[in-house]
Design a protein around this nucleic acid. Structure first.
Lengths: 144, 144
DNA sequence: GTGCTTGCAAAGAATTTGCATAATT
DNA sequence: AATTATGCAAATTCTTTGCAAGCAC
C-alpha cells in the first residue's frame, strides 16, 4: 500500500536507535551496506566488503537486526545461510540457485493455501516459510 | 499409489547398493537408525547415538544419501540443519519449533498455489520448499 | 565520566580431509 | 588381491566470546 519509494538508509539505523543501541560508525556502515545490497548476503560477504570492520561486529550487528526482525534469515537449498533486509510485511522468497540472490514476493492465494494446509494438519501453526528456487535472468544469460 | 507399508530397512540400504557403494556395518547401522528415527535428525545426533561409528563416517554417509536424494535436508527457522528420510514423492514439512521434529505432508492445493505464484513471478522455477512451523502436541503438553 | 561497542585473538561448534588400517567384493 | 570404507586426528569454515581500549551519550 505504502508507496514510500525510499525506505532506504534510515530503516536499519532507525531500528538500531529504537533498540536503544548506540549509533556507531561500524553499525552505520553495515546498515548502509545491507540496504544497498542487491538480494541477500552472508555475514562473510559483509565482512569482506568492509575489511576494516571486525568480523565479530558484523556477526553481532546481523544478529541484533535479525532479532529485531528487520533482517530475515534465508538459505540456499543446501543450507548456506543468507540474510536480507526484511519487508515490513509478511512475504516469501524467490531464491536464485546460481547466484543466491533473493527476491521477496508475496501472494495472497499462496498465503491462503498455506493457512489451509496448516488447518488440514490440525496443528497449532506458529509460522511458515516458502521458498521458490529458480535461476535468475542474469544467471540464465551467463550460463549461455 | 503404492501401498508397500514397509519401505523400511531396505530403502536406504538399497540406495547405497544402487550407488555401487559397499555394504558395510557402519552404513547398515546408520541406515537403520535413520529409518527408525522419528522425525528429523542432525548428523550430530546420529553420531552420539552410534558412538562407535566415526563422525566422519556419519557425515559422509549423510552426504551420500542426501546427494542420492533419499535424505532431505531441512532446517529450523534459525537455520539449524536437520535431515529426514525423504518420501519417494514431492512433499513439504511441518516442523516443531520446540523439539525440531519434522513431519512430512503434502497438499495438492498448496502445490497448485506455489506453481501459480511462480508463474506470477515469471521466472524459471527449478523447485520450491514450504515449511510450516508449529508446536507439536507433545511439546504443547509439556509446556503446560 | 559511565557504560555500551569495537576489534582482536582465542574459544567453540560444525563439517571436511589426509592417511594408515580394516573390511568388502 | 584390489579397491573402497573406516576411524582418528588435524585442518577448515563459520560463529561466538573474553577483554582492554575507544566512542557515544
Amino acid at each position: 500500500m505504502s508507496t514510500h519509494a525510499h525506505p532506504a538508509t534510515l530503516d536499519l539505523a532507525a531500528t538500531l536507535e529504537r533498540l536503544g543501541a548506540r549509533m556507531t560508525a561500524p553499525r552505520r556502515r553495515l546498515a548502509a551496506l545491507m540496504e544497498r545490497w542487491a538480494g541477500a548476503f552472508s555475514p562473510e560477504e559483509l565482512a569482506s566488503a568492509l575489511p576494516d570492520v571486525g568480523r565479530a561486529t558484523v556477526y553481532r550487528t546481523v544478529k541484533l537486526l535479525t532479532e529485531a526482525g528487520v533482517l530475515c534469515r534465508t538459505g540456499l537449498p543446501d543450507g548456506t545461510p543468507r540474510y536480507s533486509v526484511d519487508q515490513p510485511h509478511h512475504h516469501h522468497h524467490l531464491v536464485c540457485v546460481a547466484c543466491g540472490r533473493v527476491e521477496p514476493f508475496d501472494d495472497p492465494a499462496l498465503e491462503r493455501a498455506v493457512r489451509d494446509a496448516g488447518a488440514g494438519a490440525g496443528e497449532r501453526l506458529v509460522g511458515h516459510r516458502v521458498e521458490l528456487y529458480y535461476r535468475c535472468e542474469r544467471c540464465t544469460r551467463d550460463a549461455g
